[in-house]
Design a binder for these strands. Structure first.
Length: 854
RNA sequence: GCCCAGGUGGUGGAAUUGGUAGACACGCAGGUCUCAGAAGCCUGUGCUUAACCGCAUGGAGGUUCGAGUCCUCUCCUGGGCACCA
């Protein structure tokens, strides 16, 4: 079973036990077990060409320790891994080399799998998933169809980054300093047809659900801020020229309506052309152009100064009939609220700045609580200069004004969210194809008669005067796989490379079965066949990672994302560990999909991740983020070769708290490596035989006996609390004590090995076997501490004089305060500080300290 | 600018949550073993001091018998967000 190496030869031991675990399928999770379940999940990696980064094993080691610990505690543990394998780098590689992205992706997966296996993680490899596998993405497409059917998917024109030189759409990360990363060409915003998911329909639920999950507060707050709920009112301002109708604005402060001195509409607002008076036309047109060409970067980093232009038109304030000018300014965004605001410069910083610039009036309508006259004032206070509302606290005025406006049909209370609908399509090859074809209205109506899986409102898109109707493939026609293509370069028109694959794209389509033949062939016989064009967009990388935690429950299931039994037994992850960089997007998108699946009755619980933990970042030895360009990257392969994976795992955990950002230090790994060698020597002689110091019977000295039980308790508690660094230092303390014992009972040594097993599993298995135990240590139960062994017979009390620590006394457990003070005053060091002065007051903290005040 | 997380020895960090500041480890120094080195083992190691005393958890105040821990102000570092009406 074990190797027979004489000294700690980790290069022999580690592969040996890894192949043993693999052969015996030691970490198989059983569906339908009678045992209690524990599901611990890592954020699965994108298999990049660079291989595993040292940051990956940090989080993975933490979850592996927990998985192994929970198994020892009798749990049926689900600990899976997979590959988030669609993504941009593989596509860029394909464009460059002409090789299929799947080939490159599979090569990277092979390397990642090798590296992860060499770390000895206890994954159930039978449950490995790959988001690019048609057997997997069939269900990604299936979930999309459920969203589609529910009316949560639609098509719209959305601005994306377009590079005219490269004739392609670029992702934000492909743009550096306003130029394309490749070639450094200029980029511009361009509207393209996009699929969009209605995540805003779940905004309220996504906020509410945060109450019920055990997540870091900072992450919850970030999601809340991202969703950005704000309560206010929509108010209608009549335009002075009645033929233009009303200007609808959103405000969170309807209570300040009497202070509105001008209006602002976004440059993109549809009413801008109508509002612009002839004299202003040139200025407005120039301003609109300038605003449209502004990149996000210019708007955020530069543009500290406000700008705007007067339209020449006026609106009427609904509360007092005042005539107020309408301005056009880019500090108002079309994408939020109604794209128009009333400006109250006295009580809004941005409006104040703008009003100062253009000399607009700034009447005060909220009294400051401290009586100061300083403007702008955004604090609490009472309403003034607002006939009918004066004297009210502003929240009450807000309610009353909103109600009064509603009664007159001039407004209503509304809730707005910063959250936008989710742009869900990419003009790329390497992603899940949408299971959608585009047909004419007539053909859609025909299909609708035969199909029950269409949305209530058809999804349509108008182009060159024709309206196209989106018809989904039937579930039974999934998966829709990617066709082979001649080139991975984009089509040049803004569509994905799929747009060039005419035989795949232009088809005869059977509306009942989803079958297709190229349109170049003759139309097959039968009424069900219609002319169709496939959707050329593909899904973003988020799609596959939105639900993978569900597929692990039942990864081979061919008829559902997972069986109802598996969904019920395993539920959702008990612990989810991954980087804080996913605090918003991945975690919000996955929650959205999960809630939709919950509403459809597919999953039994409303939230996907009960408990979330973010591991910190490992910095380079120079204390800054590891990066290739800095040359401070640590490769796990090198560390495993030099010290072994047990040392690497132990060091990653010993470095500091899991959540902290910590610098790597190669000297530090030598310390934990030395610790492991010390454990080895305690167990085995130089010849590799059991150390004769280990005795079959016998006892430890009382202090060490107590320490052993303390250690069993502390290591267990610390693992549960994810405090691995202190668990390790406690084991070090125990080993240092065992080393000084005249002899060590075999049972005590076996306890130590079982504590060490989740951290350094290879060495623990090896020593366990070498000391003559028969089964593997990973099936052994977690050691039990004896609470009776934790109590002490005597008590050490800290003695302070006037709050300063001056000495300790040791006394019996039952000693009275008077006894203790007697002992303390007898102690010469303590007596020195009392200097014969009388004790005026005694503060006695039971079992801890006595503070003598003179 | 706003929000969040942090500042503890030469270094990574610990501190039972208001009760011995610096556990454990790295580094360094001395010793032991050795022909020698490596490994191991032993001792020491916050600053100051011969020692006692004193000082010390970014800084300044405060609460308390007692503060790394609580409060106020302030400085610095890291992360996130950014004209959201």
């Amino acid at each position: 079973m074990a190797t027979n190496c004489k000294d700690y030869d980790f290069l022999q031991i580690e592969p040996h036990w890894q192949s043993f675990w693999e052969k015996t399928k030691a970490f198989k999770a059983e569906n339908g077990s009678a045992k209690p379940k524990y599901y611990v999940l890592d954020m699965f990696p994108y298999p990049s060409g660079a291989g595993l980064h040292i940051g990956h094993p940090e989080g993975y080691t933490a979850t592996d320790i927990l998985a192994r610990y929970k198994r020892a505690r009798g749990f049926n543990v689900l600990h899976p891994i997979g590959w988030d394998a669609f993504g941009l780098p593989a596509e860029q590689h394909a464009v460059k080399t002409g090789t299929h992205p799947a080939t490159n992706t599979q090569n990277n997966i092979v390397n990642f799998r090798r590296q992860i296996k060499s770390l000895g993680f206890s994954y159930d490899w039978d449950r490995e998933v790959d988001t690019t596998d048609p057997k997997y993405f069939r269900w990604t497409q299936w979930i999309f169809l459920q969203l589609f059917k529910k009316g949560l998917a639609y098509v719209d024109e959305r601005p994306v980054w377009w590079c005219p030189e490269l004739r392609t759409v670029l992702a934000n990360e492909e743009i550096v300093d306003g130029k394309s990363e490749v070639g450094g060409f200029p980029v511009e915003r361009r509207n393209l047809r996009q699929w969009v998911l209605r995540i805003t329909a779940y905004a309220e639920q996504l906020i509410d659900g945060l109450k019920d999950v055990d997540w870091p507060d900072s992450t919850k707050r970030m999601q809340e801020a991202w969703i950005g709920r704000s309560e206010g009112a929509e108010v209608l301002f009549k335009l002075e020229d009645p033929k233009f109708g009303d200007l609808k604005i959103f405000t969170t402060r309807p209570d300040t309506l009497f202070g509105a001195t001008y209006m602002v509409v976004a440059p993109e607002h549809p009413l801008v052309p109508a509002l612009t008076q002839p004299g202003q036309r040139d200025a407005v047109e120039a301003y609109r152009k300038k605003a449209a060409s502004k990149s996000d970067l210019e708007r955020t980093d530069l543009a500290k100064d406000k700008s705007g232009v007067f339209s020449g038109s006026y609106a009427i304030n609904p509360v007092n009939g005042a005539r107020i000018p309408v301005w056009i300014a880019d500090y108002v965004l079309m994408g939020y609220g109604t794209g128009a605001i009333m400006a109250v410069p006295a009580h809004d910083e941005r409006d104040w700045e703008f009003a100062q610039l253009y000399a607009l009036p700034t009447p005060r309508v909220i009294e400051s609580s401290d009586g100061s006259d300083k403007l702008p004032y955004v604090g609490d206070g009472k309403v003034i200069n607002s006939p009918g509302y004066d004297g009210l606290a502003w929240p009450e005025a807000k309610k009353k004004i909103t109600a009064d406006l509603a009664a007159k049909g001039l407004g209503k209370g509304t809730v707005n969210y910063k959250l936008r609908d989710w742009l869900f399509s990419r003009q790329r090859y390497w992603g899940e194809p949408f299971p959608i074809v585009w047909v004419t209205e007539t053909d859609y109506r025909r299909a609708a008669a035969a199909r029950k899986d269409l949305p209530e409102q058809p999804v349509t898109f108008a182009e060159n005067g024709a309206t196209h109707f989106a018809l989904p493939l039937p579930d039974t026609a999934l998966p829709l796989v990617l066709p082979e293509v001649q080139s991975y370069l984009p089509s040049g028109t803004g569509e994905s490379p799929l747009a060039n694959e005419t035989a795949w794209l232009e088809i005869w389509f059977d509306v009942t079965t989803g079958a297709a033949v190229p349109a170049s062939q003759t139309k097959p016989a039968g009424d069900a066949w219609v002319r169709a064009r496939r959707e050329t967009n593909t899904m973003p990388q988020w799609a596959g990672s939105c639900w993978y935690y569900l597929r692990f429950l039942d990864p081979q299931n061919a008829s559902a994302i997972a069986s109802p039994e598996a969904l019920k037994y395993w539920g959702v992850p008990d612990l989810y560990v991954g980087g804080a960089e996913h605090a918003v997007l991945h975690l919000l998108y996955a929650r959205f999909w999960h809630k939709v699946l919950f509403d459809l009755g597919v999953v039994p619980q409303p939230e996907p991740f009960k408990k979330l933990f973010h591991q910190g970042i490992i910095l380079g030895e120079d204390g800054v983020k590891m990066s290739k360009s800095r040359g401070n990257v640590v490769n796990p392969d090198d560390i495993i070769r030099d010290y072994g994976t047990d040392s690497l795992r132990l060091y990653l955990m010993f470095l500091g708290p899991l959540e902290a950002m910590k610098p790597w230090n190669t000297k530090g790994i030598e310390g934990v490596h030395r610790f492991l060698k010390k454990v080895w020597r305690e167990c085995l002689t130089e010849e590799g035989a059991p150390n004769p110091r280990i005795t079959a019977a016998g006892t430890l000295t009382p202090d060490t006996e107590k320490l052993l039980h303390e250690t069993i308790k502390k290591v267990g508690d610390d693992i549960e609390g994810l405090r691995f660094n202190t668990a390790i230092s406690q084991m070090m303390i125990l080993v240092n004590a065992l080393q000084k014992e005249p002899a060590v009972p075999r049972a005590a040594m076996l306890d130590l090995l079982r504590l060490l097993a989740p951290f350094a599993p290879h060495m623990a298995e090896e020593l366990w076997a070498r000391l003559g135990e028969s089964g593997p240590i990973m099936t052994a139960a977690w050691p039990v501490f004896d609470p009776a062994k934790l109590v002490t017979s005597s008590l050490t009390m800290v003695i302070q004089v006037n709050g300063k620590h001056r000495g300790d006394i040791t006394c019996d457990l039952g000693a009275s305060e008077a006894d203790m003070i007697k002992l303390a005053t007898a102690n010469p060091k303590i007596a020195l500080h009392l200097a014969g002065k009388p004790i005026k007051r005694v503060i006695h903290i039971k079992g801890r300290l006595i503070n003598l005040l003179t």
